[in-house]
Amino acid sequence: MSVAEREPKIVGFLCNWCSYAGADLAGTSRTSYPTSVRVIRVPCSGRVNPQFVLRAFQLGADGVLVAGCHPGDCHYSTGNYFTRRRFLLVKRFLDYLGIDQRRFRLRWISASEGPKFAETIREMTEELRQLGPRDAAAVEAHAE
């Protein structure tokens, strides 16, 4: 299988209370989505250290998704506001270091938004497919 055809790999950090439950709901309602995503459960999106995100990229993830409750709905009331601040910055910084910001997504997905979770994975998978594998692009640019 050539790199271009390989299914992209997405690491998803989902908060336990909303987004993980949303992903579960996609399951309970048998809403299928690409097999590209692998989920790591965290208590709150605010638990996601940007270092985890970069690590995932470095180990070969083509995309990283962080998902949490909608602003105002965080189970811990304010966690996702900090998440939002932090990742506004991190997204830009990753991009600045050459990790295309389209590879990183933060999404607010509630426990009732199973379809939104599935849709997010579909969209991301499609976008990542178009972007192609990460290293190849960098290697090419380096060679120029």
Binding site: D95, Y96, L97, G98, I99, D100, A137, A138, E140, A141, H142, E144
Partner: peptide, 13 residues
């Protein structure tokens, strides 16, 4: 910022 993502990657690498 004006560079492409790949160029930046190469630069920083």
């Amino acid at each position: 910022e004006a560079m492409t993502s790949a160029e930046r990657k190469a630069y920083w690498t």
